[in-house]
Nucleic acid binder design. Sequence first.
DNA 1: CAGAATGATACCCGCATGGTATCATTAACC
DNA 2: GGTTAATGATACCATGCGGGTATCATTCTG
Lengths: 131, 131
Amino acid sequence: MKLINRDVDYAARALTFMARANKPTVSVAQMQEQVGVSGPFLRKIMQKLHKAGIVHAVKGKGGGFAMARNPDKVTLKQLMEVLQGPLRLNDCVFGEKICQRHAACVLRHKIAGIESRLLAEVAAVTIKDLA
Amino acid sequence: MKLINRDVDYAARALTFMARANKPTVSVAQMQEQVGVSGPFLRKIMQKLHKAGIVHAVKGKGGGFAMARNPDKVTLKQLMEVLQGPLRLNDCVFGEKICQRHAACVLRHKIAGIESRLLAEVAAVTIKDLA
DNA sequence: CAGAATGATACCCGCATGGTATCATTAACC
DNA sequence: GGTTAATGATACCATGCGGGTATCATTCTG
């Protein structure tokens, strides 16, 4: 039951680094040591963040990445969605068979409630909070 | 980010079945159809519940399993601990390097808070609620 | 003793996660 | 314009784990 995976962890650290650095762009080479991860791996993460519109990317010499929004507009929930996929605790593993059993449905209902409250919590954590 | 895995799901359904059945013991053969899982697999789950003291086991002809406590004393949290291992959202993947970076520590702190509230929620769901 | 049940354990398999390698593309600077 | 420094895209690897099966041992009933 992992809440966040490594991608999210590294992304949070990288974004925090970027939020603190007062530069127009920050390259992967500048981040990798502080973030504690290999360059290629961090690049892959940054590319996903770029596709998701969370960071800008500037190619070429002197280029790098920059946050596309204010740090207080980037939430942990967004990072999880981008890097871990849709957030469904409540994934029904039984298909249509499920609703033949009332007990299981009660369980789904309980979990759905827990899920919604959990999502509200991760949505409340921003990069600004971490910086 | 799965909250519960299939083992927990099946266990919850099996225990719910047992709680409703007014019998001294219930065999795997009697449960497997209703729970919707193969006999051998359900047996493995029941054995773990037995080791954890959640159910009694009676070997031999006419034997089976019985709940070892009242249904309102068996929580979703207990099932998760037994069948999924320790509940740590907050697993630090960076070892001692972590605390060199303040940002990461803030993240841990946030997640720890979320975790404790989540655990309180799963501890509040009992088999009685599902039955 | 036979049959019905659990106990224990070993094994298998597919796939997601974590990580690397490679080539293409773009832009700055000399 | 060529070199270099950066990202973009993609393919690949490898290993652990979740989910599931099979087999034999043990225990109890009748």
